[in-house]
Design a binder for these strands. Structure first.
Lengths: 231, 231
DNA sequence: ACCTGAACACCGTTCAAGT
DNA sequence: ACCTGAACACCGTTCAAGT
């Protein structure tokens, strides 16, 4: 398989992670295995273990590489005035979301991480900085981070796909049975009109739904901030 | 292994799913394999395939079994007056959360599902019914479902653990390095005091954080509902 | 109809050995 | 120090065969 005339680039952690991201983009996250990644790099599986501790560490690195992309995208945004913290935060999150939309598998990897990589730390620090600029107390900033959760990184993990249930998957008799058992749900599904698929992360997580939930949270935070003593 | 004197209970889907839940509770979701589940039932792995299509179907069934527990817990709640929809919804969600807290692995399984099982449908229908009772339009109900996301089912999937970073895992030199690279984040971490672990889903998702985010969203929805034409 | 045992096509990872 | 090949201990799942 390996062409001996090709000048053999040395394996580095950065090259391993970069190739892993490219492979996940091209083949999907399920096809990213130690063996397939090694083959992509023209190397044996065990060689990877000199640059990543194990698969968990590989995925930690992959998540951090994505966070690095977000950090780059976000670095271009202008520094806001304190009064514009909310708009700036919104802008920042939607910019991060653009990066996520380029890597549809990335939300799943982010959700499964426990470690805080250096790029994730940098992105998050800028995030906290903006909230502090807006005058929010440390306590409120902390609450805000939990309340926003994955939305701070530009995605939400959808649970089920209500549109999918009303779509092609659901047979007529299934819908009829649902109508008696779940009248409210069926009635709501009949009222749903979704964006065309493709521009989405997950199945029903389209841009307008993401922004609706985000604005609900940001408006609430702004209100809480205004109510804080000393603000 | 199998004691021939024991009257052999027939294998049913319900018994397979119930045993799967018990096994996940006892050993963790990673230890729930087709082989281990079969052994627990005193049967060969392949016998399971007569009651579940494959492992995905098994996990769909497991998620729906948990939703069934939620449905039972929630059925006891009194029917509210229309004006009390928000308090009733809050109560319902926190009741669902109690079920989730009994099965710490369940959030991960819920997140990975795509199908809508019958018990999940029933729980969700009751949820939609409460929002409709409150006078919200179908459109707003739909937005609300997306905005709440997993919170409607009583959990949030935490991304990283900021407390863990400031806790035992972080070495002093790591914190010192972080202080220069992420001053806002480090300063915030210094102000955090968390509930004792054990009563949590995930690592930093304690009850008060869950309720803070939930109230932010419910308050926002109430405000949007009051602003709707014809409400 | 229901259950079995062996086998297949994968995983991540260890280990001892090469250069 | 870096990379290799074989092997280990698992997976989910197929298949043909039993009762």
């Amino acid at each position: 398989m390996t062409d001996p005339t090709t000048p053999r680039t040395t394996l580095t952690r950065a090259r391993v992670l970069g190739t892993a991201v490219a492979l996940a983009d091209r083949e999907g996250i399920d096809r990213l295995t130690m063996r397939s990644l090694a083959a992509e790099l023209g190397v044996e599986a065990m060689s990877l273990y000199h640059h990543v501790a194990n698969k968990e560490d590989l995925l930690d690195g992959v998540a951090d590489a994505i966070a690095g992309e977000m950090q780059v995208a976000v670095a271009d945004l202008p520094a806001p005035a304190p009064s514009e913290w909310k708009a700036a935060l919104r802008r920042r999150i939607l910019t991060a979301r653009e990066v996520m939309l380029r890597h549809p598998w990335a939300p799943g990897v982010f959700e499964s991480r426990t470690g805080f990589g250096p790029q994730i730390v940098r992105y998050t620090d800028g995030f906290v900085g903006l909230l502090r600029l807006g005058g929010l107390s440390h306590d409120l900033v902390h609450h805000a981070m939990h309340a926003l959760g994955s939305r701070a990184y530009g995605f939400t993990q959808e649970l089920f796909d209500p549109a999918g249930s009303g779509d092609a998957d659901a047979s007529p008799e299934m819908l009829a049975q649902m109508a008696t058992e779940a009248p409210h749900l069926v009635e709501m599904l009949a009222h749903i009109a979704h964006d065309p698929p493709g521009a989405t992360l997950g199945r029903c997580d389209d841009q307008s739904e993401f922004e609706f939930g985000l604005d609900l949270l940001l408006d609430g935070l702004e209100r809480r901030a205004a109510r804080e003593p000393g603000a």
